[in-house]
Amino acid sequence: MDRRDELEQNLAAVERRITAACDDAGRSRSDVHLVVVTKTYPASDVDLLAGLGVTDVGENRHPEARDKREQTGADLRWHFVGGLQSNKAAAVARYADVVQSVDRVKLVGALSRGAAESGREVTCLVQVDLDDPASHDGRSGATPADVPAVADAIAAAEGLVLGGVMAVAPLGADPAPAFARLAEVAERLRDDHPDATTVSAGMSGDLEAAVHAGATHLRVGRSVLGERSTTH
């Protein structure tokens, strides 16, 4: 089987899972968007995915993400989904259409500068930490109490648009309660910012739970692209 056929089959399987989850949750399939996370995979895979109808891809490292976008001929929406360092934020804002991992106010000024200097408008999501503080595993994210401050900073910044929230389910735990907490954070955010409707949650292993909790965007890598060597 060639690579295109492999990706086509994997995409179809993921699509069936998303459709079934939407049906089970009583949601419209059109309300849930797939972001294929292409980190560590070559630009050639991105081009193949675009040819198969994928519109959104996610990357988690700079400058790999920048280089891949430059190498790819497809017209796609590029999401930066990884942890972001302050000294790289401006550079990321020069090519990413969406930055999903804004977890502190300190990042906002640099993102704004990069977007404004390049004449771009970048959508930003507040990454929310869903871990139990007593068993924190070191993942990134603003605490629910800190989300309003980060959101307000994004909304007020030149070149940035507040899109909503993003989160990763805690490791080794049932994702459903965590995604329910994210839904509550998202609802409170919309009280102050009604247009911030994006809820990015769910990956290959827990996308069904995310759909049930109201996720609007799913970040799926392994189930579409397959396993990747850990030495890559």
Rank of each mutant, 00 (worst) to 15 (best):
S118W: 01
C22D: 02
A110F: 03
A74Q: 11
L189F: 04
V35Q: 07
S112M: 01
V185T: 12
D56Y: 05
R120W: 00
A43C: 12
Q85I: 09
D174V: 06
H193V: 10
N87Y: 07
A25V: 15
S101F: 08
E64W: 09
D152G: 08
E187S: 15
L125P: 10
R181Q: 11
V102P: 13
L111T: 03
T123I: 04
G109D: 06
R104W: 01
A210V: 10
G119S: 04
G73Q: 01
V54A: 06
L7F: 06
D2P: 14
E59I: 11
D195G: 15
V150S: 06
L49H: 00
G82T: 02
P177W: 00
K39E: 02
R139I: 02
P133A: 09
D31I: 07
D5N: 14
E70G: 12
T143D: 04
R190V: 06
E6D: 04
V126S: 07
Q127C: 10
E208S: 15
S86C: 11
D129K: 12
T38Y: 00
H79S: 08
T230W: 04
G109I: 03
G58T: 07
N60F: 00
D56L: 11
L84H: 03
S140K: 03
L49W: 00
L171N: 09
D132C: 11
D192Y: 08
G164I: 04
A153G: 11
Y41F: 14
K39H: 05
R120Y: 01
L207M: 14
P175T: 06
S28Y: 05
T72G: 07
E187K: 15
L111D: 01
M1H: 12
V185R: 14
W78N: 03
A167F: 06
V211I: 11
V108K: 11
N10L: 11
C124A: 14
S140M: 02
G205Y: 01
P63I: 01
D75P: 05
D152A: 14
T197P: 13
Q85D: 04
A201V: 08
A13E: 07
M1N: 13
L160P: 08
G159P: 09
D5S: 15
R139C: 00
A13C: 13
S86R: 15
A153N: 10
A12Q: 10
K106L: 03
R17T: 04
E187D: 11
T231N: 13
L107Y: 00
R69Q: 12
T123N: 02
Q71S: 15
V161W: 01
L107R: 02
E208D: 14
A91D: 00
A180R: 15
S44E: 13
L52P: 11
V126M: 08
P42M: 10
R17G: 06
A153H: 07
C124I: 13
V105S: 12
V220W: 03
G202S: 09
E6A: 13
R77S: 12
A180Y: 05
D23C: 12
R61H: 04
A156I: 03
V220E: 04
A156G: 07
V165F: 05
Q71C: 13
D103R: 10
E117F: 07
A209F: 00
M1I: 15
A155H: 08
A90M: 05
D195K: 15
T143R: 05
C22H: 02
V224S: 13
G163W: 00
L189C: 06
V14H: 09
T197C: 13
G164P: 06
V35F: 05
T230K: 10
V122E: 05
S118R: 10
L111Q: 02
T72S: 12
E70T: 08
